[in-house]
Every structure is written in structure tokens, then in C-alpha cells.
Nucleic acid binder design. Structure first.
Lengths: 227, 227
DNA sequence: CCTTTGCTTAAACGATCGTTTAAATAGAAA
DNA sequence: TTTCTATTTAAACGATCGTTTAAGCAAAGG
């Protein structure tokens, strides 16, 4: 274990993160198919062969970069959910609390160390719509467990709702989030400049309210409170 | 004019729609960057040079195919909205009516002549998240006017709401639609098979309820009914 | 010191890309 | 039929792709 830490402290580790950072910026701007390994190499001041040495292939680089970015977000989601469960003392969580745990970490990730990096949000949203089939496996591995955990809480807070309805509406919440992330740069021009695309935190807050409202309305319309 | 009709009845027109159809299927399955002109040519039983002859370039083919598919959907949206305005007799429309006019034609387009073509829905959703910059101009031309018209009705039905809030929440409705379209094939595996991805009509109905609920909840939370 | 191991590099490989050129073909006009 | 224009075709162009090879380099172990 001490050896591993030592190894990862060598100059190779620096190259690896330089490649990852360059790849993230480029893939964000132009998609996975639109970026070449040579561009990644040039931007990271390395070599095409070096990227293949560290990541095996272009697919490997894409997968590693996504995991590197998404894993901390999911960890924060679970942390917020756990925190809320602790504070509720065993009682079912309010839906808006559940969705806050799901959506807030996205905004935190987007407002990183160097100020709001609104472009990163596009990357996550786009990774779901890219046709690359190898991404499906990654998404399954990254999100299946998270989805299951959040479904447990949704079930607890809606004991009368049908399983199918909960799935559909959680799907819509996620779809709203992904769609808003992927497209939010287009809002400013469409609103004639009225809505700024820089204020990520405001958007997330609005998004949480919208998602919780849509979820509640949809569940209630299908299964009215028993009477 | 008679000459144009005659011209468009020549064998060239047949080639053109064969190319468009082949392009639609391929782009749907693998994205714009993931499909080559040679594949389009092979699938349409033509030639690479023929596609360039008719569409000028790969970009031209993509643009023409999108317009060919989206224009009828937008026409149907405006028709439904007009129909609703006629039936309401000058009174502001209910939000759910507005969103039905916006979302229902998508489902109709997806359940085409040869039964539900659920894959087409991905294409529309993806066209918004693809990084290809030339698509932004197309989207502006295809959707700006539509957006303006629907905003007019939203304003009429929410006279007390602030312009900015209406924009944000219309954006969320569109984001939900696009996200749901682009990702809806992933719902089935994530739900363990409980939610089928074939029943497009059911999804659209659920989507309308969700969107209207989210919109209403969000507008009300920000600006409570005057009291 | 030298060897070994992990990492980096330049150069090349074969394949395939979007696009173009120029010749062949078809259908309407004459 | 002959002429002319519109369409289709085969072949090639130059560029660039992801990946690999093999040589060079740095640092730790002996």
C-alpha cells in the first residue's frame, strides 16, 4: 500500500491528471467523437502514445474522466441523503429533501475552485445522450446503485404510490436535470438575454423546486390521497 | 410551378428521400459524428457523390434531415394551440392545455405509420446536446418563433408572474421533454424492466402532467397568489 | 558503477474520413 | 434521332484518425 502511494506520487501521476484535465475540457467543448487523441496530447503537453500507455484507449480515457468527475458528486449525494435521514429521526423524508440531495451536489461541482465552470454541466448531460454504446455500461455502474438508494427513500415517503409511477417520475426528475444541464447555455439567447446562464446556483434552486413540484403533482394526480 | 412539381417527381426526388431516410436511421442510432457519408450512401443504395450533389455537404444533410422531421411537429404544435385558443373564446389558456399542445405532437410523430418508432425520439433530444455548433443556427431558426408564441400564451395565463420566472420554467419544461426523449430508452433497464420503453403515448401523458405540475408549483412558490 | 523498471517520445502503420473530379447515363426538348 | 441538361457513378484526393512500434530517458535497487 505504501508502495502504491509512492508510485502514484511519481511524475507519471502528474501526466495522468494533466491528460484527464485536458480531455475534460476538450470533450466538454466538442463531444467525445469530436475530439482527437492528438488534441488531448497537445493540450496536455504530452504524447499520443502516453495517453494510450495510461488509459489503454480513447474509450478508456473517456470512461476514466467521467468516473473521476462523477464519483465525488455521487458521494456527496449519498452524504446529503444520509445527513437528512439522520435529522429526520426515522421518519420518511420530504420529497423536496430527497431531490435536494440529488440535485444540489451538481451545482456545487459546477461552482468549483476557479469559480463557476458552467461548461462542465454540459459534459455530464451530454454523456447521457452520446450514442457511444460503451457509455451505457459506465452509467450503469455509476448510477444504478445511486438510483436504487434514492428509490428506497421515495418509496418510504410515498407508501401508497405504485412502484411504476415512482420510477416514471424519478426518471422525469433525472431527465429534467440532464436536459437542463445539457441545454442551459441555450436559455440565455432564447430568453433574449433575460436569463443569464452563469448563475448556476440559482438554476439549481429553481430546478429543485420544479422537480419536486412535478413529482408531487404527478403522483397525486395518478393516485389521489385516499378518499 | 407545374414544372417544379414535375421536376420533384423525377427519380432525383426518390433518391433524395432515400438518402434522408437512411441518414435519419443512421444518425439516430449512432449520432452525427458517428456516421459516415459512405454508410449513408450504402444504406440508401446510392453514392457518396450523390449525397453531396443533393445536400452540398454532410452538415447540409444533417440540417435538411432535422428540418424535414421537426417542421411538421412544430406545425402540429401551433395547430393545437390555435385550436385551444379558439375553444377558449379569448380567455387565457390553462397551463396544462398549453403544455399539451407543446408535448403531444412529439408522441404522435413517434408513433408513425409503421408503429411506434421510439428511436426517433432520441434523435430530437440528441440534436440539442450534440456539440456541433452549426446546429445552433438550425435550432434558432426552427424553435425561436415557436418559443415566442408559446411564451405569449404563458404570459396571458400568468399575468402576475415575472417574465424571468416564466422563461426559466418554460426552459425546464423543454429540458424535461428533451431529457426524457433522449434518455427514455434507459428507463427500462434502470427500473428492472418495470417501465417499458415502448409505450410512447403513456410516457407523453405522464410527461405532460409532470411538466404542468412542475411549472405551476414553481411559479406559485416564487410568487404566491396575491395575498 | 550497472541493471532494471517505469515512463516518455518520435515516427510510422493501416484504415477511413469528407469531398471532388470527370466520365457515364438517362429523359426531356428539339 | 440528336442535343442538352440533370443526375448517377467509379475512382481518386489529401487529410486525419486511433493505435502501435521501438528507441530513448529517468530514477531506484543491486
Amino acid at each position: 500500500m505504501a508502495e502504491e502511494l509512492k508510485k502514484s506520487a511519481t511524475r507519471a501521476a502528474g501526466t495522468k491528471v494533466r491528460i484527464l484535465t485536458a480531455a475534460e475540457h476538450l470533450f466538454t467543448a466538442r463531444g467525445f467523437a469530436g475530439v482527437t487523441m492528438r488534441e488531448v496530447a497537445r493540450r496536455s503537453a504530452t504524447n499520443v502514445a502516453s495517453a494510450h500507455y495510461h488509459f489503454g484507449s480513447k474509450e478508456g480515457l473517456v470512461i476514466e474522466m467521467l468516473r473521476h468527475r462523477i464519483a465525488p458528486i455521487n458521494a456527496e449525494r449519498l452524504r446529503l441523503l444520509d445527513e437528512a435521514k439522520h435529522q429526520s429521526g426515522g421518519k420518511p423524508l420530504e420529497p423536496i429533501v430527497i431531490f435536494t440531495a440529488l440535485l444540489l451536489p451538481i451545482g456545487q461541482a459546477a461552482t468549483g475552485s476557479k469559480g463557476p465552470d458552467s461548461r462542465f454541466m454540459q459534459l455530464v448531460g451530454r454523456s447521457f445522450t452520446e450514442p457511444a454504446s460503451f457509455l451505457e455500461k459506465v452509467h450503469r455502474r455509476l448510477f444504478q446503485e445511486l438510483s436504487d438508494i434514492f428509490m428506497v427513500e421515495l418509496r418510504r415517503s410515498h407508501p401508497d404510490a405504485q412502484e411504476e409511477d415512482l420510477f416514471w417520475n424519478l426518471h422525469f426528475v433525472v431527465a429534467t436535470m440532464l436536459g437542463a444541464l445539457a441545454n442551459h447555455r441555450r436559455l440565455a439567447p432564447f430568453s433574449g438575454g433575460l436569463c443569464k446562464d452563469k448563475d448556476v446556483a440559482e438554476m439549481i434552486q429553481r430546478l429543485i423546486v420544479f422537480a419536486a413540484g412535478g413529482f408531487a403533482s404527478s403522483i397525486e394526480n395518478i393516485k389521489p390521497r385516499s378518499n
